[in-house]
Write a protein that binds this DNA or RNA. Structure first.
Lengths: 224, 224, 224, 224
DNA sequence: CATGAATGAGCTTTCATTCAT
DNA sequence: AATGAATGAAAGCTCATTCAT
């Protein structure tokens, strides 16, 4: 009936089967955790026998790594595809955040594998995610720098933009880390609370970008 | 010198033995992960036989839960002990953050169990941490509300305090989530980068509290 | 240059392919042992696909048996080809031993399959080698008998040949067993110690043939 | 009834259980071969569960090694116990051979593990046996040397002992190898053919010691 | 109070073997 | 003539958990 072959039909090319296996693996790893996920369950969910999984993906570790890489790439691609480099820094940031929240909401299992599972299970895997995370943090760092040069979020009623006090490099890095952490945290919360990607992005922009503006203008918090 | 007997001596009261076991368990869970940690290893590290662990703590699940509870309590207690309720909201916030960063740095295994392991391994455990997280988020929510009523971070040079536009409850909740996430992220980064708790707290105050001030004054980010 | 097509070229007559497979099998069985050798490895080493191995050789057991038969035949042929039946018994023996040591040194994998692997793995295979071994033992028995009739290894300085005391049939059989075992043992040792086939054959002739001569003359060892 | 507790009774000391396991393992390895022997089968034969085997002996490899060592020690001890160092070399040799044939006949599985299995399966194990074999070969070498010094098997009717031509060290080593190989081969044959240990020892003494005597007296085989 | 002895169940991994093309 | 795709069955090993003392 259907024009699409049933996912269960036998004898399909390797590339297709591999994707099916990784789909099943991501789902299983997300729900059970790396150790608790059994290759039996993954194979069954993929609709193939266990030996075939091993034939194509070699071991549980390699399968997990392959999943992490695929999901990391999909996520970064989704974010990068949303960014229009000619727009101002804040618009780029907003677009990136919106894409991030949208992607994580649409791929909760992939996000879980990246955010929870991969970072929890030792060095072979954590490094894979750290790389992705650092890429994003670097990008955010650049955006903050750009914003600083453009003159940023003017305080309403304040005199026009002026270059704020220099932000130390270490501070910028820390801010990027904080921002990424906030986004990660919000991603989990937004999905559970039924917040849309646009709302979440707006929320974080208000929170972070505005605060950033303050920093740019030299505002600092200190004990009174 | 010490009034405490050697940790290895036989025949000690149950409460002490239990703490030793949980110390060993927290360390093992942090290093290996919930599933990979074996009761054998925990018992050996605690210096007792395996049946004794079962006698006192019943099962791996209960042991893990007990660890989570203990560490969660220690963390929240550390934060709350640092807060002086009569101080202004921002000072409370700073003190809480400083205590948080200090405690996580001084108890990396406990923090790892809470932040990484517990949330990664299914419902019985994640709920335990969510509770703690929510407590903190609620507290932050209260602080923000208080700050809003007191009139907060005045824009330098702006006219004195004025009540900001109302912040929707949902927004406040989201901000709290973002703040907690940022703090968690910074906790990891700070420990690796050798940032002191005070520095990390200051960084986050500048980032968050300032932004918060903007929000209070009705500043919002939007597409131009 | 060569009239033989590359071993990797496609579409070659069955007989040739079969030999390639058996070459690969002998090598793999020798290096890994019967059980540890995988059909995958054999097929890959032979440069063909696994189903083709099954098409031609039916099963791992049959493949192993085929290897044993081929190697046993090659060995016995090598030994027999070296023997000139019109020569005296001792010269025949020497020539046979020399050929044996030479062949095992030049075909260590084949020898390993016969000597080590085949005898180690249950009845279907051990019988195959026993047959070959018995053939050789029988031949040695005949030689000894011939030597006995000819009057053999005269003690230097002793009066000419005289028919020795009768050797019981069972003794002759035992001697043949001992001789074959000694040869097998020397084959391994000689290869490792860099002893040439001629030297090894000489050594064994001195050892065995001389002793044999003593027996023929009725010398017997007994407690004093 | 029996004064001996049933081998199946539960809860026995570790040392006893370990011996039971090794008994079962030796039997299984001998009958099936190293690879084909399954830990399941060994455990069942030993009357214990598989985990207990692993608890005590760690792995299949270690279990195999332990078996090899135990059987090698038992064999060498049996041989050494039979030797009376004050007796002449030939009597020592005879006693050693007799003990060897007796022990291998009474412990066919242990002998199979040493002679067949251990040498067939790669380096960790073969080395263990080589050590034992070399010990024996060295001992034989010493005996041959002693015999040479004492003046040995006089040709009947020949004038009293005289020091034979020097035997090169390499030759002596080769002879020892041949002798050990012959004994190994005879051990298998004697067991199958119902030859007693004494008969087998006598056979080999006649064969080897007599030949040796010839060599000592300078007799050499050569092409005529 | 404390433990040495013991196991049922389940995991990852491998292999000989067969179809469908 | 030849192969890519696929699997049933079993093996080595580990673990949470319990008895008997």
């Amino acid at each position: 009936m259907s024009a699409v072959k049933s996912a269960r039909s036998k004898r399909m090319p390797r590339a297709v089967r591999e994707q099916q296996m990784m789909d099943a693996a991501v789902q299983t790893f997300a729900q059970r955790g790396y150790r608790a996920a059994s290759m039996d369950e993954i194979a069954e969910l993929a609709g193939v026998s266990k030996p075939l999984v091993y034939l194509y993906l070699n071991s549980k570790e390699e399968l997990f790594t392959a999943c992490i890489r695929r999901e990391a790439q999909r996520l970064t691609e989704a974010v990068q595809a949303a960014i229009e480099p000619r727009l101002p820094a804040d618009e780029q940031m907003w677009a990136g955040l919106e894409a991030f929240f949208r992607h994580t909401r649409e791929n909760p299992d992939g996000w879980s594998v990246l955010h929870r599972q991969a970072r929890t299970h030792g060095e072979p895997f954590a490094a894979e995610v750290s790389k992705m995370r650092q890429e994003i943090a670097d990008f955010v760092t650049v955006l903050i720098g750009a914003a600083a040069r453009q003159g940023v979020p003017p305080a309403p009623g304040a005199a026009g933009s002026h270059r704020g006090d220099e932000l130390a490099h270490r501070d910028v890095e820390g801010l990027a880390q904080a921002l990424v952490g906030a986004a990660e945290s919000l991603a989990g919360w937004a999905n559970d609370a039924g917040i849309s990607a646009k709302e979440a992005a707006g929320l974080l922009m208000n929170f972070a970008w505005t605060g950033l503006g303050g920093l740019m203008r030299g505002e600092r918090w200190s004990h009174r």
